[in-house]
Design a binder for these strands. Structure first.
Length: 465
RNA sequence: GGCCUCGUGGCGGAGUGGUUACGCAGCGGACUGCAAAUCCGUGUAUUCCGGUUCGAUUCCGGACGAGGCCUCCA
């Protein structure tokens, strides 16, 4: 099966062929760790986790897959926050302390979302040497220059700058909305290295004590862990310009390569209840806050119900629907053993990560298993769910978690359920129905059934979400 | 202002130049003491206006609407 992916660079879907048939390499821009990640940040984490899973499956026998997701741990917001929180510490130690703490929280969040750990999670501050090396190459090749203590990339030095974002140089309005710094030769030029004052984080370099510009870290980490060129580079669509455009400029000019990555994949944005998610509107919700109300798999399914390039309107209703679906899947799957993922699910994902189609296939597998009752069908359903990062806990744990989250007195409910069952068995239907109403008022739904073997009446309960 | 996406049923959301997936909700039936849960079945849609075509939701142009980037925001 040859996967096809939409490539922002060519604005077209094309067959994917790894540059090195024995090694598939992907890089995704990871978090800037200064604060809890919000739900918008979760989208690339989940989307590219699915891509990672797909590639591992498709190349299981022919290639290894390396997934690099960086951690940005030096940046002006980080620097400011660390100075505020740890004023007594050395600046570099201060940002380390802050980013380590934030990263631990990030790891918890991303794990709860069902994402596999990437092969490598490099930190920007551990790649200062590589950044300096790239800068030196760019200075040597004439693609960069020194000015007022800064190293700057000279955009006019690169003939085909702007290909990814399809912004012809002469049409760019740089400087129209922001004052152009005096040290730039051209308004489009961007910083590779900038001087730090002693109270700011910094490292010694051939150009003095300073710190990296925004884009250089990704070029450095991708180079170190994947090489001068690699297969797939992913991130949010907002990163197309300027971040990815500038990464491409740095890496291609430093290594004299026609491309940095063959395929550039970008996920769309989230809206919140129909409105733009923004801090000023106060509708920014963190992953952590959502995890207090919903299992991570509910967030994951909600994310994957929409194709990764489409915008998502993040709504309570959508979360509720996902929760219902997962309740059914957990109930239906019943911890059965998994076989390998279904071919149709893989086909859907291989078509530019068509996760809505893949989910439709899951429904189809579930219904097929329902009809046939065959163990092989069930195993294929379960295997496909697991492959997509669902069913991470037992059906029992899933149901128990829901009961706990509802905050009902479980012992009291059990007693009422038993009393109602006793009344029903005694054909005292008035009392039985009264107790059922009482439970309903508590948000408890009863599920009566007959044991298929013995024919005995039995009852289970759950809480309304 | 420049550039880029997108507009599908009550809701969410795919594919497709010619019978329009899938899920939720709704409706009908089975089951049930009655329900719920479950199972079976089922109605409803391609923003508008032109063009190409035997035929367009799909391709092209325009209008209207929504979102994004051009501001170190995924």
């Amino acid at each position: 099966m040859v996967p096809r992916f939409y490539n922002t660079l060519t604005r077209d879907k094309a067959d994917f062929r790894p540059l090195d048939p024995s090694h598939v390499r992907m890089y995704v821009c990871g978090p800037t760790v200064y604060d809890r990640a919000h739900i918008g940040n979760a989208r690339p984490l989940i989307v590219f986790d699915v891509l990672f899973r797909l590639l591992q499956e498709l190349y299981r026998t022919s290639a290894r897959v390396t997934y690099v997701r960086n951690i940005t741990d030096v940046e002006d917001k980080i620097n400011a926050r660390a100075a505020e929180r740890f004023p007594e510490m050395e600046p570099v130690a201060g940002i380390r302390r802050l980013t380590e703490e934030t990263y631990q929280g990030f790891r918890e969040d991303v794990g709860a979302l069902g994402c596999l750990p990437p092969t490598v999670e490099p930190r920007a501050t551990e790649h200062i040497a590589e950044m300096i090396a790239i800068n030196e190459r760019l200075l040597a090749s004439g693609n960069a220059y020194l000015s007022e203590g800064h190293v700057l990339f000279s955009v006019p030095s690169m003939a085909d700058y702007g290909r990814l974002s399809q912004r012809p140089l002469d049409e760019m309005q740089a400087g129209a909305r922001v004052e152009v710094e005096s040290y730039k030769r051209d308004p489009m030029d961007f910083v590779l290295w900038k001087p730090s004052n002693p109270s700011e984080p910094g490292w010694n370099s051939p150009w003095g004590y300073g710190r990296p510009g925004w884009h250089i870290e990704c070029s450095a980490m991708a180079w170190k862990h994947l090489g001068e060129t690699f297969d797939i580079h992913g991130g949010g669509i907002d990163l197309v310009f300027p971040h990815h455009e500038n990464e491409i400029a740095q890496s291609r000019c430093a290594f004299h390569q026609p491309v940095m990555a063959s395929v550039w994949m970008h996920n769309g944005f989230l809206q919140a209840e129909g409105e733009k998610m923004s801090k000023s509107l106060g509708n920014f919700v963190t992953i952590r806050e959502l995890l207090a109300d919903w299992p991570g798999e509910v967030l994951r399914l909600t994310m994957l119900k929409t194709h990764y390039r489409q915008p998502i309107d993040w709504t309570l209703k959508s979360l509720e629907e996902s929760a219902r679906t997962l309740d059914d899947w957990y109930w239906f799957a019943r911890d059965l053993t998994a076989s390998s993922p279904d071919h149709a699910v893989l086909e859907a994902l291989a078509d530019d990560l068509n996760t809505p189609k893949a989910i439709a296939e899951l429904h189809g597998l579930r219904n097929a298993a329902q009809r046939s009752g065959a163990e092989a069908d069930l195993a294929r359903f379960v295997g496909s769910l697991r492959f997509l990062g669902f069913l991470g806990e037992s059906a029992e744990a899933w149901a128990a978690r829901k009961k706990e989250a509802a905050g009902v007195d479980q012992a009291a409910v059990e007693a009422l359920v038993a009393a109602r069952l006793a009344a029903r068995n005694a054909k005292n239907f008035a009392e039985s129905d009264r107790l059922r109403d009482e439970l309903a008022a508590l948000g408890v739904i009863l599920k009566d059934s007959k044991d298929p073997k013995t024919g005995a009446f039995r009852t289970e309960w759950e809480v309304r979400r």
